[in-house]
């Protein structure tokens, strides 16, 4: 049995290990793309079937919060990308500060999202709980809102996981920035950016349609 090394015995070097970890994260992202893909197909199918209802339902979403959340998420991604760049022993405090900023923005996103949910509850837009919409469009609008809630809730769940991940990474970086943690931060950042990309598309599909009519 080989003596204890800095990296597991199936790897030949710590660089080998880190590249392997990054590749693993890309495979995981591919999986996630298809997870949201199933929902997106459902969305397009019903948008095709009920265009007017989807446009009307879309107008009932809060574009101010939606756009603000998009900006928040894009900025948090920017901070995380900077944190990856700033990862080193000398600049580890900057790196931790950047990560903390991203965490705060991530939590702000979730808070805004829940404000949006409660507004929708008051406006009777939650399917199954006293749903109330223009009678002619009620079917399509319900389908829109089922999609809306499942997709955004799933995304918010990813956000919470991401925030927890960033918090762990910030702690590790603060304590001891090693090459292993650089790889971990790199993979964690990939995940965070991916969650951002998902939101970019959800924003385009949920908030933007029907605004011009």
């Amino acid at each position: 049995m080989p003596e204890a090394k800095a990296f597991a015995s199936q790897f030949v070097s710590s660089q080998h290990r880190d590249e392997t970890a990054e590749l693993g994260m890309w495979v995981f992202i591919a999986t996630e793309v298809l997870l949201f893909g199933g929902l997106i197909l459902g969305y397009f199918v019903y948008r095709h079937a009920y265009p007017a209802a989807f446009a009307a339902a879309s107008r009932h979403t809060d574009i101010v919060i939606g756009a603000a959340n998009t900006a928040i998420l894009l900025t948090s991604s920017f901070l995380v990308a900077c944190a990856v760049d700033a990862f080193s022993a000398e600049t580890r405090k900057i790196c931790v500060a950047l990560l903390s900023g991203a965490i705060v923005l991530g939590l702000t996103f979730v808070v805004l999202k829940s404000i949006e949910y409660s507004d929708e509850y008051r406006e009777h837009l939650i399917p199954g709980i006293d749903f109330n919409f223009d009678a002619a469009l009620t079917n399509g609008a319900q389908l829109f809102f089922v999609f809306y809630f499942v997709a955004t809730a799933l995304h918010a769940l990813h956000m919470l996981v991401g925030v927890a991940l960033l918090a762990v990474l910030a702690t590790l970086t603060y304590r001891l920035p090693s090459s292993r943690h650089r790889a971990a931060l790199h993979s964690g950042a990939l995940y965070w950016h991916f969650v951002d990309v998902v939101w970019i598309f959800l924003f385009a599909l949920i908030y933007l349609p029907g605004r011009s009519s």
């Binding site: 590749l23 890309w26 495979v27 591919a30 996630e32 793309v33 298809l34 893909g37 199933g38 197909l41």
Partner: peptide, 17 residues
């Protein structure tokens, strides 16, 4: 690796729709 997910998403949307 990054493209595979998108490519298969394309298959799902194309044949599904």
């Amino acid at each position: 690796f990054a493209g595979a997910g998108l490519f298969w998403l394309g298959i799902l949307l194309w044949l599904g729709l």
